[in-house]
Design a protein around this nucleic acid. Structure first.
Lengths: 228, 228
DNA sequence: ATACAAGCTCCTGCATACAGAATCCCAAAC
DNA sequence: GTTTGGGATTCTGTATGCAGGAGCTTGTAT
C-alpha cells in the first residue's frame, strides 16, 4: 500500500491527549470564570493536588498560560493570575477592532453562497436566543458568528490571533458583554449583507464600528458605575 | 519605611534569570538561524546535553516555543521545528500589514516632538547602513525604526503581537528581507513625515502600502526563482 | 510601641527516575 | 522481492527528590 491517502483517511487517529493541555484548559476556565482571582498566587503543589496530577503537568500548563498572557511568572516566586488594567483593556479592544475589521474584509472577498447561507443561519440563532433572553446561548451565538466570519476569510494565522484576543476581551468584559445585544445583532445583519455583496470596504467599516462600540459602551458603563 | 517608592527605585533588582528562558532564547536563535531545520525532530535529551542542562528546562522552553508557533508538539512524539508553508507566509504578511498600519496610525496620533526627533535619528541610522551596504546593521535599523514607531503608539498589547509576528516574518523571509532596501527607506521618510504632521490616515496608508510591498516582492522573487 | 534581625517554613526551579507508547529493525513467511 | 509480525530500542510524559531562595514569624533592641 504505497499509494497516497486521501485527506480524509489521512486524518490522524485520536492520540492520548497530553495531561498538560487538560490542565491548561482547566486553569484557563477557572481564571475566566473568576474562581481564581486576579493577583492570586498559584501554588503548584496545591493546583496539582486539586486536579489530581503531579506538579510537572501543572508547571507546563502554567508556562503555556504565561505566554498566552493569563498568568504572570515572577522568577523564584511562581505564578500569579494576571491582573488586568484598564489601560490594557483599552489596548486590547483597539487591537481586536483592527483584526476583526480585516477579518470582515477577507470574508467579503472570499465568501461563497453556501457561506452566506450559514451566516444567516447563525444570525437567526442569535435572534432566537435574543428573543428568549437566553444569555448563555446569545454569547455563544455571537462567538460562533464572529468565528465563522473569520473562517470564511481563510486566514488561519488571523483566526488564531482573534481567538486569543477574543478570550481576553471576554474575560475583561464578562459582565457587560451582552448588555447591548439588540443593536449588536442589527449590526450583524448589515454586516452579513455587505459580505454577501462581496463589498470588503463596507464589511470592514461595519465591523470596525461594531467592535468600536464595545469601547463606547464600556465608558458609559463605567461612568454609570462611578456615579451610582 | 512605609512610604511609596518612586517608579525608578521600584524597578526590581536583577533576579536570577530562569534557565528555561535562556534555553528558549537559544533554541529560537538556532531555529531562526537555520541551524535547526524545519521539520527536524527535537529530541529533548540531545538538546539538554548540548546546552548543558537537564531535560526539564528544555521541556518548558519547548512549551513556550510551541505556543509562539516555532515548534509543533505531536503527542507522544515530541517536538518538531515548525515547517512554514507558503500559505502561512502569505497570511502572516496580511496580518502584519493590518497591525503595522494600526501602529502607524496610533503613532501619528500620539507622537510628540521628541519622538519625531528620535525617528529621524533612526532613519539616519538606516540611511548610513544603506550607504555602507552593511546588511546586518540595515536589518537592525529597520527593526528598530518599526519597533520605535509602535512604542510611540503606546499600545503594549499591539507591540507584543507585532514583535511575535515580525519574528516569524523575518524567519520566513530571511534571504529577501533586505533586497529592496533603497525604496523601503524612502517610504520610511514619508512615513515619519506623516507621523510628524499627526496625520493618522496618511501614516496608516503609507505603512499599509509599505508592508504590502513585501508581498509583491515575494511574488516577484519566487517567479524569478522558478524561471531560473 | 516601633524598627530590626535571626530563624523557620514554604515554595520554586532544576535534576533525576520510572512507566508507557511509538518507532525501528530484523527475521520469517508468502 | 514484498509483506508481516515480534522484539528491542528510543523517546516522551509523568512522578518524585533535593537544593536554594523568598517571605513570614518571632524575638530582641532601641
Amino acid at each position: 500500500m504505497r499509494q497516497g491517502l486521501t485527506a480524509a483517511s489521512a486524518r490522524r487517529v485520536a492520540r492520548p491527549t497530553p495531561l498538560r493541555q487538560a490542565v491548561s484548559d482547566a486553569l484557563a476556565e477557572l481564571i475566566i470564570s473568576g474562581t481564581l482571582e486576579p493577583g492570586q498566587h498559584l501554588v503548584e503543589a496545591d493546583l496539582a493536588e486539586q486536579l489530581g496530577v503531579s506538579r510537572q503537568p501543572v508547571r507546563e500548563a502554567l508556562q503555556r498560560l504565561h505566554t498566552d498572557g493569563w498568568v504572570d511568572l515572577r522568577p523564584a516566586q511562581g505564578a500569579f493570575v494576571h491582573v488586568p488594567t484598564q489601560e490594557e483593556a483599552t489596548q486590547l479592544l483597539g487591537v481586536r477592532t483592527v483584526l476583526e475589521t480585516y477579518s470582515a474584509q477577507l470574508a467579503a472577498q472570499h465568501a461563497k453562497p453556501e457561506h452566506i447561507e450559514r451566516l444567516w443561519q447563525l444570525q437567526q440563532e442569535g435572534m432566537d436566543a435574543l428573543a428568549e433572553s437566553a444569555t448563555h446561548r446569545l454569547v455563544a451565538a455571537n462567538t460562533a458568528l464572529h468565528t465563522y466570519i473569520t473562517s470564511v476569510g481563510g486566514n488561519d494565522v488571523l483566526a488564531e490571533l482573534i481567538t486569543q484576543v477574543g478570550r481576553k476581551v471576554r474575560w475583561y468584559y464578562t459582565p457587560i458583554a451582552n448588555s447591548r445585544s439588540k443593536g449588536s445583532w442589527n449590526e450583524h445583519a448589515r454586516l452579513i449583507e455587505a459580505i454577501a455583496k462581496g463589498d470588503p470596504e463596507r464589511a470592514g467599516e461595519i465591523m470596525r464600528k461594531h467592535t468600536e462600540r464595545t469601547r463606547t459602551y464600556r465608558k458609559a458603563i463605567e461612568a454609570e458605575a462611578a456615579s451610582a
